[in-house]
């Protein structure tokens, strides 16, 4: 048996978020609108998929 993992995923080609993206994800004002948009999306999906 080998001692350490052989098959860790190579993440070097996974996209790194830019500083702009990271800031967007933390921005209270902009994230409030995403919060509202996501809630509306859940409700639309509930209405569409739970009939």
């Amino acid at each position: 048996m080998s001692e350490t993992p052989l098959a860790s995923v190579d993440l070097s080609r996974s996209p790194m978020p830019t500083t702009k993206t990271l800031n967007y994800r933390k921005n209270l004002f902009l994230q409030f609108f995403r919060f509202v948009a996501f809630d509306l999306r859940i409700m639309r999906m509930v209405l569409k998929g739970h009939r």
Partner: peptide
């Protein structure tokens, strides 16, 4: 999507 809003949800 990823972000602070996900935590609020």
């Amino acid at each position: 999507e990823l972000g602070l809003h996900g935590h609020w949800v």
